[in-house]
Design a binder for these strands. Sequence first.
RNA 1: CGGGGUGUGGCGCAGAUGGCUAGCGCGCAGCGUUUGGGACGCUGAGGUCGGAGGUUCAAGUCCUCUCACCCCGACCA
Length: 565
Amino acid sequence: MRISKLFSKTLREVPTEAETVSHQLLLRAGMISQVAAGVYSYLPLGWRVFRKIENIIRDEMDKAGGQELRMPALQPLELWQESGRDLAFGKGLFTLSDRRDRKLALGPTHEEVITQMVSHNVQSYRDLPQLLYHIQTKFRDEPRPRGGLMRVREFTMKDLYSFDTDEAGLDQSYNKMVQAYHNIYTRCGLPTLVVEADSGAIGGKDSHEFMVIAESGEDEIIYCSSCQYTANVVKAQSIKEKLPEEMPLPLEEVNTPDITTIEGLSNFLKVPQNHTLKVVFYVADGEFVIAVIRGDIEINEVKLKNILNCYELRMATETEVIEAGIVAGSASPVGISGFKVVADDSITSGTNLVAGANKPDTHLRNVNYPRDFKADIMADIALARAGERCPRCGSQLSAAHGIEVGHVFKLGTFLSEKLGAFFTNDEGISHPIVMGCYGIGLGRLLAAVIEQNHDDKGIIWPLTVAPYHIHLCSLYGEGSKVSEVAEKLYSELEAEGLEVLFDDRKESPGVKFNDADLLGIPIRVTVSPRTLKSNSVEIKWRSRKESELVPLEGIVTRLKELITD
RNA sequence: CGGGGUGUGGCGCAGAUGGCUAGCGCGCAGCGUUUGGGACGCUGAGGUCGGAGGUUCAAGUCCUCUCACCCCGACCA
């Protein structure tokens, strides 16, 4: 490809809307173009990278025994109502009506479609296991698209679904996929971490995410460097410090003027924060819920949501709290009734705690569980934090940010049961098929590759996903011998099937080199009067600092070797 | 959805107290001079100032409404 003919242009200045590195570089290199919030076009160079990633994924899926098929983006809404997941996805589901006013959804994922299809095609244990996948556009009405390709509303996902007769089979399929995913990321030049994850709207039991560690990542990972425990914060656990037991004392009211925060309370009464109780008010699918936790710990809303088994969980608004007759700032579960109380198990340790008195400017000393209040649900709803101790080995936990580039789920049988995907086993008994699902967002993966492979000048593509392998630069070309040599080299390389981007423009060396650095093609080959003096060209890897002069003779085979090594 | 911010040629921006032909840099086109890390000169093209309504002799500038986009939070590949 000649740059002089290339549709996209590079940008000198960083577009103001771009914050993350990959977004800036994709825009500057002319790889993508925004159409609406969270909706992008891929321009020729970006699309080439996309297709390379797609092919790597396809290759690994096929190697793992996957069969590629293709399901539609447009799906009947009924299917979602049948599985009940229209509620789980909520507003994230794009819906529309056809001319007969039949309701349709743009698929945010494809479990329903494939499960229904499998229910028609699989009757016997002899038909299992199956690994089916496709690479298709997904639509999700994200509350907030962001970071360029990081989080968009229309995106391409590779999703594979496994169908097995039992848990052991599922485990096998699951492990195959985990291995295939590792291969994919490695081939894309991305080191990833497998972390324990929450399954969210997808549902199911075990679930792991593949994370690329990056400052710009949206996710927080809690990990233990001594025992390899790694989990998404929303899932992570930590050991809660046990507090010494004392003799329970009688309840005592204290006046606490204008004290409404745990910190203020702790300072005012000279009581450590871990000797206080914190209450937070939520609305879970319309029901008012009180969450109680030790004052020094934060509530993990994902854990809370899972315990409550609800579709929508949000903090209660100020008016809802007032309408519930609660004194915010001095609230506690002591002496309050009519609400569901969920308590973190941290409150079972420690005695004589300080909690609100449910009266303005008043708190209670010597609150003891379960003497003074009861919880409807007692569970772990705490947010784990770096510095706390590992639930597995007791060492100190650390935290890092990550980009979620893949997610795998052991779904089990809840969907096959709902959608009627059963098989007959060798004893003639009908069983629900055991399912798993495995997704990779291609655009996000592409962005993550850039986040991991760039410098202040631009992108540094790994050879495997680079839009082209060779960036051929001719300096001061027009009408000279340089042009003759470069043109000849270009056609020879193309004839050999090498992927070459040829900068044949009438631009100064500075412009060409800067563009080459920005575009990040792995090998730069420069032809100029200077190199021709010694009958050679200059070869420079984008990833390295130094360059070398290489004789023109045999240059094509030399380059071919560089690329295949 | 809550909070913050921005909309002015393709890109980045400037346009106090309203004032006459809306500027600058980059990019783009033509000509000339340059030539290994974003060269220089001259000439030129390109703008419904996000949109609608209003105030005024006069609106990019003031008022009302609205739309879009970005960033921070609650969600996900």
